[in-house]
Nucleic acid binder design. Structure first.
Lengths: 337, 337
DNA sequence: CTGAAAGCGCTTACAG
DNA sequence: CTGAAAGCGCTTACAG
């Protein structure tokens, strides 16, 4: 394929090679390849043809270096195994593409050390902005990052950090929706399977507790986690304690809770009602009631905020709250007598 | 933070700034930051301190350019919404990190145009190798890419393309496992919900058809897709045709099939047995029998093959077949009388 | 152990 | 419309 081969190793063609083959200067070749209108049609054609014949592929590391722009945003996803994050990502990518930005995706697999390494890598690659679809960074690390590059956090509200925007659902209100729904169905022994010790879990738990109090009901919180396993164990503890309804911290855990109930021979919703949280698409097939967030929209909003901040790095922080709603499905029904 | 601020805009510190602050040359600063042992301890400390005070962050685009290496592999994922791919990715990343490579992740969202754009981006970023966790490229495109950079395809066997390795499960044998399992349970009306018109779907379908023939049973194939929706529609058609057992093309479609059966008021496995394909973790909670592939291992093997080829670009293509096994769960049971 | 110089592949004023 | 030159931020021989 390539014309000159040095000691068997194939050197990739550069702009220099293209220009030489087309019989023009590097500068002109560069202009032509960028589609500049100031190149004579004949030259342009010669250059494009040469590039084609050579299989020329522009070197982004070189052009980024000189342009001082990468036109790329970095996205960190906490955990690729939770489909919720993939749905948020859809929105981010759609909006980023709309602004003609590419996306560099990275995941910490819910491990803080890996996460920092990967985000550092993004920064070294000079992404122009960062979307964190959940994270485990400390406030200090987060502030340091936001000082370096426009950043938006999706999934929980993050104030008080300059240069940082956030997009989140109202977890307090969302958890209340779940309790209201179950209370309206006549449930009194409504348990909450918590999502562990993190901001979102705490918010959802508070929402549950306040709503229970408002309904004059005794709260019953059992330890769980944002995982199937966490939901499974939580559901066992909750039914042991006599719960007839479960407000589970997230959808994944709700799926685990369902498995636990099945293993116990309990019917859903006849014996126990289950409500999840997040609104991942799969729940439709699973017929699971949930508190749904507009996931893709959260991603879109995040990317849009990021683009705004890339344009105007010093604008004040903005925090968007998206609307959350209850989606009733077959996993919740009237309380047993 | 930074010392000299030009017209309000903060310029990021470069190696030059670090060297100046430490009172040494750029070359020495570079060496020190790379941890070279040829730098005097005193100099090293001064340099590290200066870098720290300045908040210096090395510019990867610059170092990649001069080093002619990125130490990065690109990974394309067909569809982030199928957890199967995330599980394969785990293996890829684990192995890549083990070889001290970073990973650039990209997805085409199952759209061929986006896919090509994203892969092109990876190539322009000079990744040293490519793992395609499924793809929609033509053989020509694939061959062109493999000519440019070491490439391995995961998920189906791909021969006849130089410089390209592949890792796949034995779909023919796998589908047979599902049929054998159901036949052993006494089922005769075993339907296959196909995965559409693509290589994997065709293989699995053939496996099903051959196995049925070997059992002396009449095949019954209904159109489906590798999606919940496809499984849903397929299941409806299959039970209409009198099937008592469903061999579904993949797990996602099997989840959809379950939803269809539930909507029809059919019990699983009492009325209809369901077997999925892929082995995604979630199925454990869903109590769904499946033909499981060692997903993370497939990813690890792929990354290992890629590393080998990066070392020896001209070695012959190798194609690895991983072992597939049936994981029986609650969704399959004896045939109804 | 340390510094001056060249160069990675590209883009962008600046002259003509 | 086109070319020569400088430079993006770094690394790496090469002298000392």
């Amino acid at each position: 394929m390539s014309s000159s081969v040095a000691e068997g190793a194939k050197r990739r063609p550069t702009l220099h090679d293209v220009a030489a083959r087309a019989g023009v200067s590097k500068s002109l070749a560069s202009l032509a390849l960028q589609g500049s209108p100031k190149v004579a049609p004949a030259s342009r054609e010669a250059i494009l043809a040469a590039a084609n014949e050579l299989g020329y592929r522009p070197n982004r590391t070189a052009s980024s270096l000189v342009r001082q722009r990468t036109h790329t945003i970095g996205v960190h996803i906490l955990d690729l195994h939770n489909p919720v994050f993939a749905e948020i990502l859809d929105g981010v990518q759609e909006a980023a593409r709309g602004h003609d930005y590419s996306t560099l995706l990275v995941t910490g697999n819910a491990d803080p050390v890996t996460e920092r390494t990967e985000i550092t890598r993004l920064l070294e690659s000079r992404v122009e902005g960062l979307v964190l679809i959940a994270h485990r960074l400390s406030d200090e690390d987060l502030a340091a990052i936001a000082r370096e590059v426009p950043t938006v956090v999706v999934t929980w509200r993050t104030d008080g950090i300059a240069g940082l925007d956030s997009v989140a659902g109202d977890d307090l209100a969302g958890a209340r929706l779940a309790v209201d729904h179950l209370a309206a169905l006549g449930h009194a022994r409504i348990a909450h399977i918590s999502g562990g010790d993190n901001r979102i879990a705490r918010e959802r738990r508070s929402g549950y507790e306040r709503a229970m109090a408002d309904h004059g009901l005794d709260p019953l919180v059992v330890d769980g986690a944002f995982t199937e396993r966490g939901g499974y164990a939580g559901a066992e503890a909750a039914v042991d304690a006599g719960a007839t309804a479960l407000v589970v911290a997230n959808d994944l855990a709700a799926i685990g809770a369902l498995a636990a109930l099945r293993a116990r021979g309990l019917r859903v919703p006849d014996d126990v009602s289950v409500v999840g949280y997040d609104g991942m698409r799969l729940l439709d097939s699973l017929d699971l009631t949930t508190v749904a967030q507009p996931l893709a929209e959260m991603g879109r909003v995040a990317a849009d905020l990021l683009m705004e901040r890339i344009e105007a790095p010093d604008r004040p922080s903005t925090h968007r709250l998206v609307e959350t709603r209850l989606v009733p499905r077959g996993s919740s029904g009237p309380a047993p007598d």
